[in-house]
Design a protein around this nucleic acid. Sequence first.
DNA 1: GATGAATGAGGCTTCATTCAT
DNA 2: CATGAATGAAGCCTCATTCAT
Lengths: 210, 210, 210, 210
Amino acid sequence: MNRTKASPSLRRGRPVNAEARAERRQQILDAAHRCFVRRGFHASSTAEISSEAGISVAGLYQYFPTKQDLVTALIQHELEADLALIQQLDRAADLLEGLQQVAMAVVRDSRTPQAAHLRLEILAEAARDAGTAKVFLAAERRINRALSRVIRKGQEQGSIDRDLDPMAVAEHINAFLDGAFSRLTLPITDPEAFVRGSIELIRRALSAKS
Amino acid sequence: MNRTKASPSLRRGRPVNAEARAERRQQILDAAHRCFVRRGFHASSTAEISSEAGISVAGLYQYFPTKQDLVTALIQHELEADLALIQQLDRAADLLEGLQQVAMAVVRDSRTPQAAHLRLEILAEAARDAGTAKVFLAAERRINRALSRVIRKGQEQGSIDRDLDPMAVAEHINAFLDGAFSRLTLPITDPEAFVRGSIELIRRALSAKS
Amino acid sequence: MNRTKASPSLRRGRPVNAEARAERRQQILDAAHRCFVRRGFHASSTAEISSEAGISVAGLYQYFPTKQDLVTALIQHELEADLALIQQLDRAADLLEGLQQVAMAVVRDSRTPQAAHLRLEILAEAARDAGTAKVFLAAERRINRALSRVIRKGQEQGSIDRDLDPMAVAEHINAFLDGAFSRLTLPITDPEAFVRGSIELIRRALSAKS
Amino acid sequence: MNRTKASPSLRRGRPVNAEARAERRQQILDAAHRCFVRRGFHASSTAEISSEAGISVAGLYQYFPTKQDLVTALIQHELEADLALIQQLDRAADLLEGLQQVAMAVVRDSRTPQAAHLRLEILAEAARDAGTAKVFLAAERRINRALSRVIRKGQEQGSIDRDLDPMAVAEHINAFLDGAFSRLTLPITDPEAFVRGSIELIRRALSAKS
DNA sequence: GATGAATGAGGCTTCATTCAT
DNA sequence: CATGAATGAAGCCTCATTCAT
């Protein structure tokens, strides 16, 4: 009866296959990523995802008790990747320079249209589902805080207008970038030029008046 | 030549009631709007939509031969409403003033969160489906042209920097506004302040340097 | 209330549009024929049939109160055509010669595969539905009687064995021909040779022993 | 090379129970058989079939991914049974004697009207659907080859005319028997006498001239 | 008489999920 | 732990049929 849960205290060290488990979990998340990017959250079936992950459907349910849980986990995973991206800006001397560099790297990445699509799916899911909205806003706050730190640095250097409220500006830039990003899902003529223009407008908006 | 259409007065049987048909069609689109806003395109079933429209499922299919057709029609309808919104700017003396006014009116409208959600669904659907992307881009071009006209007016008045390319700026503003708009689907503290901030940043980006 | 049926005695001669009605009816039967041949009875929808007939669906229901009625009418029509075919044999001097001629004419007709398909649909429908079976057997009896007359003529001429029972032979030939006919629906190599062989075997079966 | 299939004993999870699967599959085919005989292929719904098989509709789809696949499988199953029937003739010393015996056994079997009905459904489906036609013709060829072997044996014994082409005769007999068989779906007076007459005619057609 | 408009019932198929092995 | 097997509920769509015009 209590065999499966028997005396965890008797197990020394970390559970035997925690590593393999985490690996499998990631494998599923990757497969889900590919599926969601291809067809969206709702149009991707558990069968499709598990097949893409090279696992049985029932197996999937041992890692995510619900499809919604899988969706949520993937969203969280994705949002963390976004945070990592923003944190790259910290390394750049100048916010706008850094933004430019990161943005150009992103726009040149062939996987960006898919990433942009996924971002839209996430925004839409947050609009539909209050739970997702909460998760999204929590991640958003961390990102904005990171971004505002870089902005403040820019203000100290003088490249960004000191009158601007760093946190508010962070929120707006974030939103703006989402808008610009959403265009990268579409077959537009010159994505690179488009992104360059976006960055340039942001620069104009933030730069200290003479 | 006109044999098949000759003498419509001779047409036997019950005449087509174009008016009632158009009305019913709109009634369905309205119901679909409500459903799509509530749950998104894919999670809304034809049963749900037709029930909301006060019609049978089979009846729905006399107006839209496919669920995707209904989705597309609704998207087109929505995009046209967006165009109308942009055209309101023409009436304002100044682009930025006009933008401010329209934006404030929008943010105060209680239906805006839903409209914003629908906008996200449309963007996501465009990312998924090439046909929708085409429809979207076509509408986008019309909107951008209208917006660029207003921008040019601003440049002539001197309120907008003459070095900026009106069409490119229109594209970016449009994208930026989408990003800002997407935040209105979320339970943020002060939407009005947020939008005001967005407009202010756009003003800074566009305004002629002293 | 009794307007539609009002005083038929007051109408002189035949009802006003009996002719037009019969024409329309035939027009529908022809359309149904084309549809049934293409997809069978059950897979052909009233919408498809009426569209093929250039009429509204509701219009169809004024001529055939039920789809099954239409099917039955078409079966009857088809069976009568079969009877007419058999009666052509009467004109030939010799049964086997006549059979040969009719069969060759049939096998060379490009519409024969379709006719053969329809014949199979009719047989299958008769196997499913007792009502159709009755209709079918009634027509069969008339055909067999006609055929047996020709056979008797052949016996009198000496070309057919006098020991054979004309009616029984008619039944068997009829069934045999159905079997041979059913092969003409399939993409076989040389239909004409096949039919020739069939007739030849029948000839051997019937011919008087030396 | 055999990496993916390596060491089946290492396969994790519940092992496939091939036996139970085959049994269930047959159980479904039997149920489908009953339904198809009752109402034909197109009028039998998946709900009806699965209910008759004591399985859920979704369960049905684990064994046959499509209704058409089920139909095709059943057709194939049926055609193989026909082949087995023909192969019984091999055991008889004389073709015509054997034919007589098999035919009498068939006509006395109470399930024959149903089998005959199914045969008609198959022929009709082959006329409708090119894929089925191909399957049908392939089976037909095997049957004809088996039949022609028996015929050749008859020719060697002298009971069958040596001038006849065994393969051609096989084709015709097969077709003729289909025609005769089709009559067994109908409420005719004396099926046994009818079949006896059919065999007698075939005997006359094949027997060596004195 | 003929058509447009509407609909309940039902068709095939897929889904997320469970459970014994 | 992982899989095979099963399923109720639901999804989209089509059908034969009716009825007001």
